[in-house]
Amino acid sequence: MDNKKKSNSPSFAKRFSQLSSKALKSKSVWEDKDEFLDVVYWMRQFMGIIFGLIWGVLGFKGMFAIISYCLVNALFVYVYSVSFQQIDEDEYGGVSDIIKEGFMTSFSSFLVFWIVVYSALHA
């Protein structure tokens, strides 16, 4: 019973490696909506951290930096979903739902890394 339960819900590490190989392949076939949205979610988290580090190192400041991050982030997710994976947007409740997926969490990770790196290098 316990084994059956375990096989039905793979560990996070296993699921993560499965999803990353699918995510890097163009036009992958997704088992369900959640699978693709998880990819978008985790991709966003990495983007938040990486862009936060870059913005901090380059010393970007002000409203321009925040807006440019939001635009680059949304554009990246849009191009990835529509051009690279070519998913049917309507199946996911429209492009806006995909663009909103994990946005706030990634925005906060971007802010933390941007602030910390900027303070360390430019303050």
């Binding site: 819900s9 996070f12 909506k33 959640d34 949205l37 979610y41 988290q45 938040g48 706030m104 969490t105 990634s106 906060s108 990770s109 802010l111 933390v112 602030i115």
Partner: peptide, 20 residues
């Protein structure tokens, strides 16, 4: 800000967040 992204991601990793 740190709590916002750490807690949410931790819940996602542990699989305790409510499904979509």
């Amino acid at each position: 800000l740190s709590t916002m992204f750490i807690r949410q991601n931790l819940q996602k990793i542990l699989g305790v967040e409510p499904s979509r």
